[in-house]
Structure formats: structure tokens, C-alpha cells
Nucleic acid binder design. Sequence first.
RNA 1: GGUCCCGUGGUGCAGUUUGGAGUGCACGCCGGCCUGUCAAGCCGGAGGUCGCGGGUUCAAAUCCCGUCGGGACCGCCA
Length: 596
Amino acid sequence: MTPTTPSSDDPSRDPAAGARGLRSDYCGDLRVGDEGRQVQVCGWVARRREHGEHLAFIDLRDHTGLVQCVVDGAHELRNEWVVRVTGTVRRRPDGTLNEDLPTGEIEVGDCTVEVLSSSEPVPFPIDERVEVDETVRLRHRYLDLRASRMQRNLRLRAAVNGALRAAMDRQGFVEIETPLLIASTPEGARDFVVPSRLSPGEFYALPQSPQLFKQLCMVGSVDRYYQVARCLRDEDLRADRQFEFSQLDLEASFVSQSDILDMVGVAIRAAVASARGEEPGPIAHMTWRDAMDRFGSDKPDTRFELELVDVTGVFAQTEFNAFRAPSVKAIRVPGGADTTRSRLDDLTDRAKRWGAKGLVWMRVEPDEINSPVAKFLSATELADLRAATGATAGDLLLIVADEWRTTCHVLGLLRLELGRPAVTEGGLQFLWVVDFPLFEALGEDGSPVPAHHPFTMPHPDDLHLLDSAQSADLLSVRSQAYDLVLNGWELGSGSVRIHDPVVQRRIFALLGIGADEAQDRFGFLLDAFRFGAPPHAGFAFGIDRLVALLAGEENIREVIAFPKTQSGGDPLTGAPGPLDPGQLGELGLRLLPPAN
RNA sequence: GGUCCCGUGGUGCAGUUUGGAGUGCACGCCGGCCUGUCAAGCCGGAGGUCGCGGGUUCAAAUCCCGUCGGGACCGCCA
């Protein structure tokens, strides 16, 4: 599946869009239908092919593509010079058509060339076929952006943004901008902070998300809010994570979870349609518990099988100590029995690094199971194991026994290691993961840690468990929180919010947050809720991730014009950099010597 | 905080396992030739702190230690 972007073939585009300023047309727009027209095209010299003193071909490039210009000598021109070419569109002579080029049936002949700007030789080829080191690309990002890959990705992103905004507008949402300089709240991710000049020694934080403001909008009777919101989190970067990212953030009043899922679905379908030309089908639902049990992840990649099979019951009475655990699960790898010993050792090492005590492997052979631990297991156990997993000769079984969460987590990572398809394969598998737990674990002080955030409404069927004295019961409380997953990437999450101060106080108490502390940290929100808060719910999803997957990119840096490296630097601008002493003084700051 | 991979003319690579002269390939660049090419072709040329520092050795791109930069991942990311 090839992503498409608006092009000269897009009927909605103004056909005269190129006929402005110095040019009459864009390079990539010219076709046989333009035969005989005198045109002016502007762009960069992509390549020149000289044939002696009086014949040369110039491939002229702008963001729409290439067109071949035939000139009387081009010895003075060089690659990446900026020129304006005036000439006549004509059919190419028989036998000289280029089928690889959309403009390959025509050329611009009888050309006069105006040099608008010259160029030094560029530090790397602007050519799809050469994979250039990413640091070099980022150091000269303005050159990298000339490549069709980046042009395609940026324009795809713009199209998706436009489709999202239109879809939200259609559904009655109003776009509202929220502040970038806000108060730091010690929840969640590490804040980026900004020192205050007018209040030396005090700091603003940059928003991790507009969470509290959009809820205030609901109290303010906005009814339906959305924003393409920049969010900032000072956490380690990854292929799917930058310091700065964009979310489609939304919140609505007097709606339920299913309403939010529907409204987000409308936006998602519009985005996919803008990128792919066709809408995806309905988005499947899965409970968090199922996701963890079957895929070992709260963001399951459902493009491939290798599901986890629970075999705890098989070993309920086992003599093998390693399998006497709360949870024993297996992955069956069809045809995996020929996996080499060194690869199995490698997988075992990984499993241990990921937190497992070990990894048991079994090669399934016609009459026996070949495994270092087979001798510790009874014939019944081995037979039941084969039956439970459906294993047949030639398969490989990988088994982890541990606490339920660890077993799921480790096998989930192993599953990805063994079978995850490339980003361009397997289509677009959207998935709603619902019924997240309200609390994800017990903290060091014994109080539960919120899985989403402290304003998440518990599942109505589980409200009674909040009054239980048993910590274990608390961990089984479900919430009205939900995630949207695409091909194993968490696109976004949301929840129904607590609008009742009584329930909110109860949750804060369970979290170990006293009334004074709650007032100190979220006082303005709690105050607002004293004055008539409508029931409300919301969601936010990452636009960088959505666009990357729609573009077939493994890394969100490919859909960001000016991204940071994994260590948080920008090779183009040199950021981050030191502050001069004057600026520091004005802010009331003094630097400590580097630790150690 | 941790694990792993990468770093060789401007670019992309080979060479590193098994130490032996900066050896090689492709692109680009500079000069010349060339009237239908399209990653044009042909001839000639320039271009190197093998990321950096230290160590082992008669000898290090190659082995060892450290460090810097980049990348993937675990932790982290309510």
C-alpha cells in the first residue's frame, strides 16, 4: 500500500495554483495536454546531462516533481542551483519517453535559463536511493527537506491535520488554544520548566498536555473542545517519542465513553481517508485484561499471531519448581523447532533482562519434546501442554512462569522480537483497548498508583470495591479509561472524568493525597468543580505517530520537519546551548558546578 | 540508570574475525571530450586526523581500555 498525498492529480486543488509570481506552472504538473504552451518553471537543478557544446538536459525539481528541460549548453549550471526556465512544452521524440517520470512524455524545449541563486556542492545527495546518515541529514535539514520523501511526509501530515480539523468542526467541536506557560504539577512525566524573570526563583512549566484546561473548558460550557496541541515531556527519546509532540486533544460534555470512541473514530477515519483515499472499517475493541493475557501488552500489535497461551493449569500440581508460579504462559512458534541454540540463548538473555527469572524452550519433535527441562515434567504435563498450545512437530514453545504481570510482559516483548512485521506490512490494525484498571500497582507507601490520572472515573460496576479494605481488591477496580492502538503503537488515551467532588475526594484519599495537598496541587480544578461541573470525557492521540504509520515510516522523526536526536539535541541549530551570565542573572539563576 | 549496534576522502560501502605501506569499489567534486540523454557515456585529476585519547606491539583502521557522536531497546514516558 503506497501512501498518497495531494498532487497535481487531486481534483480539489486549484489548477492555477502554480501560475503565480515568477512561474506559470509547477514542474511536476506538466503533461501532454500542455503541449505547445510557453511556460515558466522555477526550481532546483536536480541533474544535468551534457552532450557537447550545444545540447544538454536539465532535470528541474520543485516540490511537485521533476521536468526535463532541453537547453543549448549548460556548462555553467551546477546541481542545486536555483533557476527559472522559460520554454515551450513539447512531446518528446519517439523512443525517448521516460516511463518512470510522471512528466516523462513531455519536455520543456527552446529554453532560456535565468540563474536566481547558485549553490555550493551539497554535503549529501538529494536522492531517494541513497540512505544518508541521519545526523548529516539533520545538520542540513533544509536540504533533506528537498527530497521527495520529506516533501511527501510533511504534506501528508498537513493533509491529516486538515482532515482532523474538518472532522472535529463537523462534529461541533470548537478549537481553543490553551497556555504554554503553566504551573508545574508534580504528576506524570518530568516537566520542562521556564524560569520567570518577573518572579525570580519561580518557574513556569511547559504543558505535558492541556488536560486540566480542557476540563475547565467543560466547566465553562464550551461543550466540545479540541486542539492540535503541542505537548512537552522531558523523558528519554525513542523512535516513537520526542520531547515535543502534537496531539489531537479533545473533550466533550454530557457524553459517555462510547460517544467519545465514536467521535474519535470519525476523526481517525477522516485522517486515514485523507492519506489512503479510503476509510478503514470499524475499530475493534478489546479489554485491557484480554490484551495483556493474549498479547502481553496494553498496546497489542494484532497484525500477527504468536498469541500467548495460558498453561498455568497444566502445571498446577507440577514437581518442577520453576513452573510453580502464579502464572505460566507459552508462545507457540510454528515451525520454530529449527531455531539455533545460540538464538535460544539470546532470547533467554533478553527474557532475563526484561525481568523474567528464565525462559524455558521446548522443541516439539514427532515423538518427544526436546528441552533442557523435559526430564522434570511428567508425561501427562507434556501431553497437556501440547494439547493446550496446539503444538505439533516442528514447533517451538517458549514458556515463562512468574507473577502474572511479569509473565505477560516478558512474553509480550518476546512475541514482538519474534514476529513483528515491518511498518509497511500488515495494513492498519486499529484497536480500542478498554476497561483499563484504575490503579496499576501499589506504591512504596502502600497506596495505589493511578494507571491513567487521578481524575479518571472508576467503572460503575466496580465502584463498590473502592470501599474494600483489601489492597488487592483495589487493583482489580476497572476504570472508564481507554487507549487507541495502531499496529502496536499507543496512539492515544482518554477517560471519562470524575465530575463529582465526593468521588474525587474518595479517590484522592485512596491515592494518599490529603485535602490540603489536593487543594495545593489541583485546587483551581477542584474549585471549578464546586461551581457546577458537567459530566465529561475526553481523549488525545499523537499526530506524529499516526502520520508516521500512515506514511510507512518506522520513526516519527521522518514526519517532523526539525526533530531532535535521541540525546535531545538539534544538530542543525546546536540546541541545547549555554546561557550567557547576563541572562542567568536576570532570571535570578546561578549554575552549580557539574556533578562529579 | 542499563543492554546492544554503528563511526574509514563530501556521500554510501568493503577492509577489522586472523595486526603488516591509507589498499579498493560506487556516487559526488574539478578539468577535457561528447547533439537525445534521463542514476547519460568516455578520458584525466584532486580529495583521508580510519570519530577522539590512551595502551599493547617491531608494526594498529584492525587487539585492549576510556571517551565523544549517532541509532535500537529496557527502565522512564500519570
